[in-house]
Design a protein around this nucleic acid. Structure first.
Lengths: 285, 285
DNA sequence: CGGACTGTTGACAAACTTCAATCCGAGTGG
DNA sequence: CCACTCGGATTGAAGTTTGTCAACAGTCCG
């Protein structure tokens, strides 16, 4: 049906299959691999240092580390997707964000004795493991590594800031639109299609991340689809009107009036602000 | 517009600010000062390194750095309070968080060419300035400094995570309660009273940070006061029932039922989560 | 095939946003 | 010196989105 989705469908099946068993445990990967993989031009001197960096495989649904668990290592996501969560006493799970290729996880535990959050794999994933007790030494020995860490931490900080963007007080549809734009840009940065992708997380996870009820997420998806911005089928999303949805994502709270008539797409019913289509007859699938 | 805001803020609370008018010029401070001030036992070898670390003063309402501005330096807050904000095109200002003594600002700009956020002083403040281009070298030369940076970044990451706690989908009063608890703990960590403090930020800033309308913040303050949890007068807050407000802060979405009968104070009308006090006697019982 | 979970949709009540009026403190200017 | 203005804060009333409850459809998996 959708070519772009085949790959994701495939990886979805990895979940319950021991197919990729060979890729298993921390086979010795090296700092060189990590640096190269992170896009660093590895110099000769770096090559001399044969520092092993373990690789760890995490299956779908498995935790990379648990909230409250000891802070032993930080992780660079090599493949897959994770969600960072914090769980309240009553069991309510707050999703702080989703992380993909190249992102750093677990760094917020450095300033404490334990992890303030959990990281849970949403699909078959793998990470580079850097032990906390080695970080300083490695950075001292290999300046490039230090640079990588700084960059990654900075990115992590920025990503956490995006949390505010989606949870900031705006209509639920706008939150979802913003979230989808973030996702789209993430995909684009990884060389994947920014227009079509497969959501690795459940509606519940999205809801928690956006700060709304999961039913509202469903409704918002339907609304966006009804407005012609996208097509959605379960976790498959195809964006039809990128500019339009971007414009929608930009709207903030109230008195949006009309924004830049030039930006609004003619083909889209959404006239540019805060009009509710909800109960109107114009809502057509 | 910016000038108007800055001017008003400045002349308002700190009319005598002219005193420090020209203080922007960093009086020479040193790395030693920074390390000692951050609580590091400075060793002899560190003392040998006479690395100058400029100090910068920022007046109330003034920006430490602007969103979109060039990433030249990162800052350790030495005194005062800042708010980190991101401004939408239509002028809506999203407050990402508030930072006080010892916290690191501007680090999220490292991975980009410019600052993704602004930092604005909420009162007369001062910061240690560490130029971006010096960071790596300094960390190489002085391991302790590297440690400090890592710790501070980790803290910053954690603090950003707290944003989710206050914005997560819960009742407005709970958001405010959580925010106040965070503030209280911050104050405690700085050796100030956790029960009584002066809010450096406006209701509007709080509202943006909590993700609600500023009127709702006012109402929530009144509600908390009405329930006997605290006394509030403008920006002065005194917490009367710390345990009670903590219990309230813990409640997540809806039906709080009863939480720990032992924890609930007898003097407090709060019988089980959500009841209105103010001028609406008809609501719930 | 059935069970369990995820996702969708409807209805209603609750909570929030918005508009609007008022109060207050501080700074400004007559 | 006092009236005046301006912005912050509080409170009221009305309108609307959203949370909650509930039922159902779709998908996955044993």
């Amino acid at each position: 049906m959708l070519n772009a989705f085949e790959a994701s469908q495939e990886s979805k099946r990895y979940a319950h299959a021991a197919i990729v068993a060979n890729a298993t445990t921390g086979e010795g990967s090296s700092m060189c691999d990590l640096l190269q993989w992170m896009g660093v031009d590895v110099t000769a001197e770096d090559l001399n240092e044969a520092v092993p960096i373990p690789l760890r495989r995490v299956r779908a649904g498995e935790a990379l580390f648990h909230e409250g668990g000891p802070a032993q290592a930080v992780y660079f996501v090599r493949a897959g997707t994770f969600k960072s969560t914090r769980t309240a006493e009553d069991g309510y799970e707050q999703v702080l964000g989703f992380s993909g290729r190249g992102e750093l996880l677990g760094f917020d535990a450095l300033c404490m004795d334990s992890h303030p959050t959990s990281a849970i794999a949403l699909e078959e994933s793998s990470v580079y493991v850097v032990l906390v007790r080695d970080i300083y030494a490695l950075e001292q020995r290999m300046p490039e590594f230090g640079r990588i860490v700084h960059l990654a931490v900075s990115r992590a900080l920025t990503r956490r800031g995006e949390l505010a963007d989606v949870m900031a007080a705006v209509a639920a549809e706008v939150r979802l639109a913003r979230f989808l734009m973030q996702l789209s840009q993430s995909k684009a940065a990884c060389g994947q299609s920014p227009r079509r992708f497969y959501l690795r997380m459940s509606r519940r996870d999205i809801a928690s991340h956006l700060g709304v009820a999961h039913e509202t997420v469903s409704r918002s998806f339907s609304a966006l689809a009804g407005w012609g911005y996208l097509r959605v089928n379960n976790r498959e999303v195809e964006i039809l009107d990128m500019d339009g949805i971007k414009a929608l994502a930009r709207s903030t709270r109230r008195h949006v009036d009309d924004m830049e008539p030039g930006v609004v797409r003619a083909s889209v019913p959404h006239a540019g602000g805060r009009q509710r289509v909800g109960s109107r007859p114009s809502l057509s699938a």
